[in-house]
Every structure is written in structure tokens, then in C-alpha cells.
């Protein structure tokens, strides 16, 4: 067999593999996009959930052609270059393998472009506010409009929330062994084991703990924040779908950790207001016994004796201490 002939045959192989690869990749991506992508977790209950789903889907769409490329090459090689196949030369004693600059350069270029694109995309998605990171935590890098105002107001007894006002709803998540309870500072600071939130509303979850480390994971809302004693971890999500969601503790916290879950609900803003005002009224006598609303509380680590108190050492929303220079002055 002449060298020219085998070169021709190689290009022929490459063209055939490329054709199979393109057809399969386009088919897989299209099938994925229309059939699976809308159902990829965590769903579309909030803007952050939607952004997470979008990020996952971008990764899938990029990964399928790579995966299929590897499989097509492997399948093609098994079928066409099997030693059992007539006319295929013995693997031992054949001509020495030659380098192929074109193949090497294109391999390096293609993989670099894919990886660099994904690194750039990931960074933008992570710090872009609506992505996976959001810069949330005890010192949120990114805060949705109106959140600082609502959070600052939450510490006063005059904070309020009304449907259609476009206000941020502040919800405090309190982890304890073994359940989460929720405080609503804009409704007189009542506390409840139920997590009900209004639709089409930016929610600021302020997460803390009264004892060991827990983790607040509202799966369908795409919110996950550590619940640490004497720390206020903030996470945001804007609701845009009615329905139930699951809250789980995702930090091993003792014997009933596995039972530390509850189901939350996104309801219409007016239904939420009805629930919140009626619960505020029903719990009013007991709410008076609670400590004033604060970002963190100091429990007594020695056992039963002692209630929980506002932490005098951490001034919430201090420009320097708690939220850094990013904290607006409003």
C-alpha cells in the first residue's frame, strides 16, 4: 500500500467520524434541550434556582459533544481497526507512528477553548448575583435592590411588608436541635415552625443557629446556607412559582439530623399576608416572651438553664464588623 493511498484513507476516516459525531451531537443536544433541560434540578421556583438550572444545562450542552466525540472515536476504532478484520495490518511490526502537527494543534486549541470558555462562564455565573455563588454569606458581596433597607428596618419594631410594594421580605431561619423555626421581623417578629413565603418577592433568608452547626437547604428554592451559632448567613432568592418545597438540614447535627426537615410553601402575596397577619395575632401573647428580633442570639451552652439572648458583641449591619464596606448607608 502506498503512503499516498493510506493518507487518503486517513482523511476519509476522519471525515466519516466527523460526520457521525456532528449528527449525534446535534441530535443529543437538541433532545436534551427540549426534553430534559426544563426538568433539570433544582427547577425554576426562584430566580436562583432558574439560574442554577441554566448553568447545569450549559454544562450538559457543552459536555455532550465531548462525550460523544470520545465514544464515536472509540466505536469507530473498534469496528474498523480490529486486528480480526481482514486487511488490517498486525499491530506489531507495523510502520512507526508519525506525529501529526495539525491533529495536535487542533486538539490543544479545541480543548483550551472549551475549558477557558467554561471557566469564564462559571466565574460570571458565580459572582453574577443570580448564579450559584451570589457572593452570599455573612458579608454579602451582592445584595438585591432594597435588601439593605429591609434588613436595617427589620431591627426596628416598625418594619412592615405589604403585597405589591416590591419590598424585600426578611425571613430569619433559626436552626436548633432538631428543627428549623422561622421569624418574620416585618410581622411583629413572630416565630413559627412553618415556612410560608410570598410569590414574586425577593426573600432575604438570614440564617443562624441556637446550638450546633446546622445547614438550611431549601432545595427547590436553590438556597443553601450554613446555620452557625452567633453568625448571620444571608442568602437571597426571588420566588416566581407557587408550590411546595423541601427544607432539609444538610449538616450532620446529632441523633435527629435525619428527621430535621419540613415542607415550605410559596403562596400568593395576599395569601401570605393573610397567613402572616393571622399568625402574628394568634402568637402575639407568646411573641412578647421572645427576645427582640436580632441577627444572632446567644444560647446558654451549659444546658437547659437560660433562654436565648441577643448577642451584645456582634452589632448587626455594622459597616465595618459585619457587612464590610459594601453596606450602603441607608
Amino acid at each position: 500500500m502506498s503512503t499516498e493511498n493510506s493518507m487518503k484513507k486517513e482523511t476519509h476516516h476522519l471525515r466519516r467520524m466527523a460526520t457521525i459525531w456532528i449528527i449525534l451531537s446535534v441530535a443529543a443536544d437538541l433532545l436534551f434541550m427540549f426534553w430534559i433541560a426544563p426538568h433539570v434540578p433544582p427547577g425554576t421556583m426562584t430566580d436562583t434556582a432558574r439560574a442554577n438550572q441554566f448553568d447545569f444545562n450549559v454544562l450538559f450542552l457543552m459536555a455532550f459533544p465531548v462525550l460523544i466525540g470520545v465514544w464515536v472515536y472509540m466505536g469507530y476504532a473498534i469496528v474498523n481497526w480490529s486486528a480480526k478484520r481482514a486487511g488490517v495490518p498486525e499491530p506489531i511490526g507495523g510502520p512507526a507512528a508519525r506525529g501529526n502537527l495539525k491533529a495536535q494543534v487542533s486538539w490543544i486549541v479545541v480543548t483550551s477553548v472549551i475549558v477557558l470558555f467554561l471557566a469564564g462562564f462559571g466565574t460570571v455565573a458565580l459572582i453574577g448575583g443570580k448564579g450559584s455563588g451570589g457572593g452570599e454569606g455573612p458579608n454579602p458581596v451582592w445584595m438585591p435592590a432594597g435588601s439593605a433597607k429591609a434588613e436595617t428596618a427589620a431591627l426596628t419594631s416598625s418594619a412592615s411588608w405589604t403585597p405589591g410594594s416590591n419590598q424585600v421580605l426578611v425571613v430569619q431561619v433559626i436552626g436548633q436541635q432538631w428543627q428549623f423555626t422561622y421569624r418574620y421581623p416585618q410581622f411583629g417578629g413572630f416565630e413559627s415552625p412553618k415556612l410560608i413565603i410570598p410569590n414574586n418577592t425577593e426573600i432575604a433568608f438570614n440564617v443562624t443557629s441556637l446550638d450546633v452547626i446546622h445547614s438550611f437547604w431549601a432545595y427547590q428554592l436553590s438556597v443553601k446556607a450554613d446555620a452557625n451559632p452567633q453568625q448571620n448567613d444571608v442568602a437571597y432568592a426571588k420566588t416566581d412559582q407557587l408550590g411546595n418545597f423541601t427544607v432539609r438540614c444538610s449538616e450532620l447535627c446529632g441523633i435527629w439530623h435525619g428527621a430535621m426537615f419540613n415542607y415550605g410553601k410559596v403562596v400568593t402575596p395576599s395569601d401570605f399576608q393573610n397567613w402572616a397577619t393571622s399568625t402574628e395575632a394568634a402568637n402575639a401573647a407568646n411573641t412578647k416572651n421572645l427576645p427582640p428580633f436580632a441577627w444572632t442570639y446567644v444560647p446558654d451552652a451549659n444546658g437547659a438553664a437560660g433562654g436565648y439572648y441577643i448577642d451584645g458583641n456582634v452589632t448587626p449591619y455594622s459597616q465595618v464588623e459585619t457587612y464590610g464596606a459594601k453596606q450602603p448607608t441607608s
Binding site: 433559626i174 436548633q176 423555626t181 416565630e191 413559627s192 415552625p193 441556637l210 446550638d211 394568634a282 402568637n283 401573647a285 407568646n286 416572651n289 421572645l290 427576645p291 444560647p299 446558654d300 437547659a304 438553664a305 437560660g306 433562654g307 436565648y308
Partner: peptide
């Protein structure tokens, strides 16, 4: 002793949201 989380002084989920303590009905306990 005082509760660590005073929220647990609230009676919830019972018939009529009430309980009795030594014969007296109550819905929250300080």
C-alpha cells in the same frame, strides 16, 4: 427553667390550639 427558644412556649397543633395545665386551659406559657 426558661426555654432556650421561647417559641416552644406556644401550644401548636392540638385540638383548638389548647392544652390544660393542672386543669386550666392555656395556649402559651411564659
Amino acid at each position: 427553667s426558661p426555654l432556650r427558644n421561647q417559641q416552644l412556649g406556644q401550644v401548636l397543633g392540638t385540638t383548638n390550639g389548647k392544652a390544660t395545665l393542672d386543669g386550666t386551659s392555656f395556649s402559651n406559657y411564659n
